[in-house]
Design a protein around this nucleic acid. Structure first.
Lengths: 369, 369
DNA sequence: TCCTACCATGAATGCGCTTTCACAACGCGT
DNA sequence: ACGCGTTGTGAAAGCGCATTCATGGTAGGA
């Protein structure tokens, strides 16, 4: 009130009002114990009267650290919402968590434990470097979901601050060598291998079909590799390529794949089991097979991968491999915090989180495990 | 390489390498079209070679805006996780969204549309103003969930930047008057009134019981008010207080409340319907009643409030009132963006979002609506 | 009593950027 | 040929804070 100051109050205003120097005001906030009790009170009173809030930008600039960690992820929400509005998960959209939600939650909690806030941003299509650069400029360390931005851009940023790539393997980069980023991913191959083994050994299935996705999905490829491993180990024929590739790894794509499988069922008839590279497709397939009058798991087994909540609601409940997305976020924060504590940058790390096979009804298991 | 510069590159380094002034470097990023093509290229090349990323702090300081919106919410995750680890939603914990998740999602999407990133932070118990102040210092505008921090603190902050309170009504503040904050909440009273009306008119129930929560939960109180309105409108007795208050609005609290209701069932026997102030309690009650051998809705109807996903999975499915939490987040961003565009600060706004009664089995409706 | 040690505080500098303001170089019309 | 508006660029002044260094004051030991 009538302090003669127009804009938002700064250290100078508070200092003036409290009759101290700006250094003292700063100290009151940064290291209160170094200021005499009486002085501190004066300053805090003045600050309250003025409605003073320290500027994070100024503080960050002067101290060279922000107390914020960042997360960038691709904008995969909108296309789905528009193209599949009629499917069951449109209704679930508001109820179930996307991967990004889970990772956010994991990171937020872990960040909180370490005293960090979390800055999140999804790539608005168009801005090439704008997204990551914007985030990178405001944080002490940053996690980026695979395939959000070119790895090359990430490496530039990683020269300035710790960057960890989530859910993606190290990539071949430039001449001779992998990228120099930290990575955290889940055990896609191992999970799919174990799931396949379960179908083969525990359910005695032998004619298996793997439905993959687009070729440049490292996840889907790794899962296919796991499938092959299991086939090889069991002495079954080992396919070079997935029997089918869905161009979209969605319910619609899965349904189409299922119909094609049924249509082209040769002299041997249907496969005994169909393994989809993700849950979305498997759920779509479940619906499609039902419409064709086929029973799962009696006529054929079906499995997914991911562990989405929807898998528990469909009929039959979906056998799948659950990914620990929450932990992915938590581990990302732990890694970043560790990096920030380092004197000098260590070698890139690559962490692989274990997954869990979830046995439900669609593979023939009687009950949920 | 060998630029003689040790730390992270700055405008000066880029300018030096490109043979221009720092002003030009800045312009290349802020308004590329004002720089000649050739010059721009020189700068971008130098920037790329150096691994230059503009400092958000410096930019924010100089330009007085950050391009970031903030969200603060209370840390209500941990206590639940510890105290109810054994209940059904512990398993669902990783699958279903909390309110904070939904609001985050809503805000993130809306913020993205407007070119903002989102900074989120939950109050780590202990730091009094530290949380909100930290966030407030780094953002252009800020949403805060009700009861995260004292309203008084928010008003201080709101002198510096737009602040909107989510899911809480305007509060009595200081001498004479409501707080001066923007508010966005949901129609708690209207929703509960409509739900109660449904039980009374459509199902013909007359002996109804409302189970509230702790007294200082504005949500629970508003819902109780709606319950009373409906009773009054129907000519039923209007209670002054909820028949029962659960100290914890959790499944355990709801279960306890249900048992107490059964135990004290007087000469009239049980009420015909029990309305819980939230879904958590209602679900707990469903379990407890089942254990007591009571059938819902045959012996008595049960309803909740919130619309949590779990409500669709329990037996019987839970009739409730769905809150549009996602939209809450979206509207918050819209409001903040509007405020930021204002020349001079307008009057506080208070927006009430409509809710939706979801009729499922627990009230006696045959199927999900 | 004087000197040393320490504590609380102030003065001053710089963090990396944006943003006037000024200026040079260039058309263009008359 | 002259003045004029344009366009592209540089110089310099902060933005609000943290932090170092210097300084005045106070307490303790001799």
């Amino acid at each position: 009130m009538g302090d003669g100051v127009a804009g938002t109050p700064t250290v100078y205003d508070v200092a003036g009002r409290a009759g101290v120097s700006i250094a003292t005001v700063s100290r009151v906030y940064r290291s209160p114990e170094s200021v005499r009790e009486a002085t501190r009170e004066k300053v805090l009173v003045a600050a309250r009267e003025l409605g003073y809030v320290p500027s994070g930008s100024a503080r960050g600039l002067a101290s060279r650290s922000t107390g914020v960690l960042g997360l960038c992820f691709p904008d995969y929400s909108d296309p789905d919402a528009e193209s599949e509005a009629a499917t069951v998960d449109a209704d679930d959209d508001h109820a179930f968590m996307l991967y990004s939600d889970q990772i956010i939650r994991g990171m937020e909690r872990a960040a909180r434990r370490h005293g960090y806030a979390l800055l999140i941003a999804a790539s608005l299509t168009g801005g090439p470097e704008s997204l990551v650069a914007k985030v990178a400029g405001r944080v002490d360390g940053c996690a980026v979901l695979a395939r959000t931005v070119p790895t090359e851009d990430l490496e530039v940023i990683s020269r300035r601050l710790p960057v960890v790539m989530l859910a993606g393997p190290p990539e071949q980069d430039g001449p001779g060598g992998l990228d120099r980023l930290d990575h955290i991913e889940v055990a896609n191959a191992e999970g799919q291998r174990e799931l396949t083994r379960h179908l083969i050994e525990d359910h005695g299935l032998r004619r298996l079909t793997f439905v993959g996705g687009i070729e440049d999905s490292p996840d889907a490829e790794a899962r296919f590799a796991g499938f092959r491993d299991a086939c090889r180990a069991a002495g079954l024929p080992v396919p070079d390529e997935p029997d089918l590739r869905a161009e979209l790894m969605t319910q619609a794509g899965g349904a189409r794949a299922a119909e094609e499988l049924v249509d082209r069922a040769g002299p041997d008839g249907l496969p005994e089991g169909v393994l989809f590279a993700n849950d979305q497709m498997a759920v779509g397939a479940l619906h499609a097979l039902g419409r064709r009058g086929l029973r799962v798991p009696e006529d054929l087994a079906v499995t997914g991968f991911d562990g989405i909540p929807l898998g528990r609601l469909v009929q039959p409940t979906l056998t799948t491999v659950r990914q620990p997305m929450r932990r992915l976020g938590e581990e990302a924060v732990e890694l970043l915090v560790r990096r920030l504590a380092e004197e000098k940058r260590g070698e890139p790390e690559s962490l692989v989180l274990p997954v869990e096979v979830v046995r439900r009804a669609s593979c023939g298991c009687g009950h949920e495990a």
